[in-house]
């Protein structure tokens, strides 16, 4: 009993901290992403937003936002004393999926630029493909290590239904 209370308290804290970091990062990325679109459309190369080494993107920012929201809802679910394993798992799996996706895109960009030497990549640098979520990866990785049992249950663990 004592132990399971501890883990649920742990998860509560994890969900809250994880979601806050993701939400703050997401808001920053989305807002800067809007500026960047504006600067690009007016072809303002000197715009301050272009000075950010890792270009923000609206859609990538929205994924970070969504993951943060899933964890946040999970946090409120734990506060009601209900099981939030699903929220932790889904948020973490989506985060992991997008991190892998953006690493894959980074790799294909490198290939396109250096191996194929495509024209579109003339001004491209590796920094341009480093999405913000990649820097946030310690959080989902920490969750996976800490809550492996919850996220990737090998043995189908079941929970008795509260009637």
């Amino acid at each position: 009993m004592e132990k399971s209370k501890n883990t649920s308290d742990n998860m509560k804290t994890s969900l809250l901290i994880g979601s806050l970091i993701f939400l703050v990062a997401a808001l920053a990325e989305v807002i800067l992403g809007v500026f960047k679109i504006y600067a690009d459309s007016k072809e303002l190369e000197e715009h301050w937003v272009n000075a950010i080494p890792f270009p923000p993107g609206i859609f990538p920012g929205l994924t970070v936002l969504l993951i943060g929201l899933i964890w946040l809802v999970g946090y409120f679910v734990t506060r009601k004393g209900q099981n939030a394993n699903g929220y932790l798992s889904v948020g973490t799996i989506i985060a992991l999926g997008f991190i892998l996706l953006f690493i894959l895109i980074l790799l294909t960009d490198i290939f396109n630029a250096y191996a194929l030497g495509l024209e579109d990549y003339e001004d491209w640098t590796i920094l341009a493909s480093l999405r913000w979520i990649i820097f946030l990866s310690p959080i989902p990785i920490f969750f996976i290590m800490k809550y492996r049992e919850v996220i990737f249950t090998r043995k189908k663990k079941t929970i008795a239904l509260q009637s």
């Binding site: 859609f59 929205l62 994924t63 969504l66 929201l69 899933i70 809802v73 999970g74 099981n83 394993n85 699903g86 929220y87 798992s89 889904v90 989506i94 999926g97 997008f98 996706l101 249950t153 189908k156 663990k157 079941t158 929970i159 008795a160 239904l161």
Partner: peptide
């Protein structure tokens, strides 16, 4: 009948507010 991991995931991906955004993100990805 027990509440399984699948059920817990379903509560999230079919959530009133989160369901459609999750779907859109999965499509975009």
């Amino acid at each position: 009948t027990k509440l399984t991991r699948s059920d817990l995931i379903d509560k999230v991906v079919t959530h009133k507010w989160l369901g459609i955004p999750i779907f859109l993100m999965v499509m975009w990805g």
